[in-house]
Amino acid sequence: MPNVGGWRFVVLGVVIAVMLVLPLVVKSSFAVDILIRVLLFSFIGSAWNLMGGYAKQLSLGHAAFFGLGAYTSTLLQIDFGISPWIGMVAGGFVALLASLPIGWLCFRLRGPYFTIATIATAQVLMLIFLKFRDFAWGAEGTTIPNLGHAPLMMQFETKAPYYYIVLGLLTIALLITARIERSRIGYYCVAIGEDEDAAEAIGVDAPSVKRQIYMISAFLTALAGTFYTQYIYFIDPQTAFNFNISIEAALVSIVGGVGTLWGPVIGTVLLETTSALLQSWLGNSIGGVQLTVYAVILMAVILWRPTGIMGYLAEVYARRRSKSLSLPAKA
């Protein structure tokens, strides 16, 4: 009997193979679009999860970093002709730097007031970009000049390349998460999330750890902003700093299971599948259906399965293992 670790690699291998061939098999561009959305929000959710899930710093302001990433690469591209590939990384660093003053402000608060402060900072950023039109096109936003097939400028004529880009981003985020989970900073984050005083008492510099994880989370979120703008060829403050991005980042993680590697991915698959099904069933005519369903799912998870889907699976697994306790742990 192969041990658990062995099974895990088999499953992972199959998943990777399927993900790699998927765009070759799926021809409908509607379907590829949904796949891209799923990967994108899995990625954003994973970025949020580092801070919100492991360190339990429940931000509802990650749109700030998404927007900064989007605007940085777009400004560099349109004003200076710099490739979004470079702009994407630059955007990441802009967000990383921005997380320092934002964190300095918001980490003074704990609990719900931290959450409110993060909302406020994202809103202020959006309002600034709305207000100052000579700086970044104001409320009208701008379209990204379409260069046709231009891989170096992150522009493609089919959807498949976008799919692979965001798949790559998600892979990076998952690798980073897996690595953090096993290292000191991962333990420190979870400890802070559980009890900040107790963590301090055993030598955890909580402000510094929170700052670090916020920087990583902000950096990754900004990459998504650049990607999304390139994908839809358009940017304005309302899309780039949309509150729904902050919400969904948190939502997919909570539903899937905060503080778990795969939670955001599972959560996104569930939420986006539900929403795609609803859309094909009801059409786009009625506003609010999608978020209504999200709200119901979120509420159900909080009331009945606060540890999310992954947490639930872990419980089931633990229960089954304790039943077969007589077996040695390692076969």
Binding site: Y187, V190, A191, D195, A199, I202
Partner: peptide, 21 residues
């Protein structure tokens, strides 16, 4: 003030990380 969601081992490892990362 235990870190409730962590295992006993993980709790104590968090302390041990102070001297060895």
């Amino acid at each position: 003030k235990p870190f409730g969601g962590m295992t006993v081992l993980a709790n104590v490892m968090t302390g041990a990380f102070l001297r060895d990362r």
